[in-house]
């Protein structure tokens, strides 16, 4: 049974699905759609952050750089990957690999799946804000095609750092929001228990973001409880990426930067709304 008829699920149900441990993660997508993936470690400043994977490989025979959040599938995995919440090193590793991609003319594909950047003491001491800012800035000026795919949760600046792209693809039940619904409810109503109400208000579903001009394409999902659903999903994501990538490959680097800038220029502007 497919659940891809828009409007059938409430935002709350979609948020729950976006966070489900049944969903394939970045490493599953890489394994299934990238050939000869070679992971690369480290930010060359301090350490290697396991909540972010980055590396190179072939996508449909095209050399690409892939960067994504890793959450892990069980508790041990979650702990190891900090539930997909990066430290500054994760963002610095990503910035480094993005610049490397630009140097060698490789498109960048990012997989976004994070509740947000890790709010830890050490993260703060090592410049979480600066690391995210630098990553956003770097991505906004890359001379190679950039595609971001939202596979689950896209929370806050921690998600945005990997999403300043030419084409933003969202899975039907993925979300993208200014903050987690719990955080949103806590800040505005001083009550994180009202998170479900926040989900309804925040316009965080793929359909909402598509309407606001932030998401470029929605990929319909099968139910992940079904056998064979993963294979269906990998195929659909693969098709969506190549479909979006093809026209970008023919576009000159300067033109890509210019278009990305103009897209951002319009974002949230009353006078040139997307």
């Amino acid at each position: 049974m497919e659940q891809n008829k828009a409007g059938r699920l409430s935002p709350v149900e979609r948020v729950k699905l976006a966070r489900s441990s049944l969903r394939p993660g970045t490493e599953d997508y890489i394994k299934n759609i990238i050939e000869d993936y070679i992971p690369m470690a480290g930010d060359r400043c301090y350490g290697d952050d396991l909540s972010v994977t980055g590396g190179i490989g072939f996508f449909h025979g095209i050399p690409v750089t892939v960067i994504g959040h890793v959450k892990g599938h069980d508790l041990d995995g979650n702990m190891k990957h900090r539930f997909g919440m990066p430290d500054p090193e994760g963002y610095r590793k990503a910035s480094r690999l993005m610049l490397q991609a630009a140097k060698f003319g490789r498109p960048v594909i990012t997989f976004v799946d994070t509740p947000g950047a890790y709010p830890g003491k050490e993260a703060e001491e090592r410049g979480q804000g600066q690391a995210i800012a630098e990553c956003i800035k770097t991505m906004s000026r890359l001379s190679v095609p950039t595609i971001s795919v939202f596979t689950g949760e896209g929370g806050s600046g921690g998600a945005l750092a990997f999403a300043v792209s030419d084409r933003l693809i969202m899975m039907e039940n993925s979300i993208f929001s200014i903050l987690s619904p719990e955080g949103f409810a806590s800040i505005l109503w001083h009550d994180s228990d009202r998170w479900q109400e926040a989900c309804e208000k925040m316009k965080l579903t793929a359909a909402d973001l598509n309407e606001m001009g932030i998401c470029d394409e929605i990929v319909p999902e099968p139910s992940f409880e079904m056998e064979g659903s993963y294979a269906v999903m990998f195929r659909r994501i693969d098709e969506a990426i190549i479909r979006n990538l093809k026209p970008l490959l023919k576009t000159d680097g300067e033109e890509l930067i210019k278009r990305r800038y103009l897209k951002l220029r319009k974002t949230g502007s009353k006078y040139g709304r997307n």
Binding site: I136, K137, R141, I178, L188, L204, L209, I214, R260, G268
Partner: peptide, 20 residues
């Protein structure tokens, strides 16, 4: 918070302006 995702996108918008 009240402007939701559009506020978040201003981080990208302002950073792109700084970059240029």
């Amino acid at each position: 918070m009240q402007e939701g995702i559009m506020s978040l996108m201003q981080m990208a918008k302002t950073s792109a302006a700084v970059a240029k």
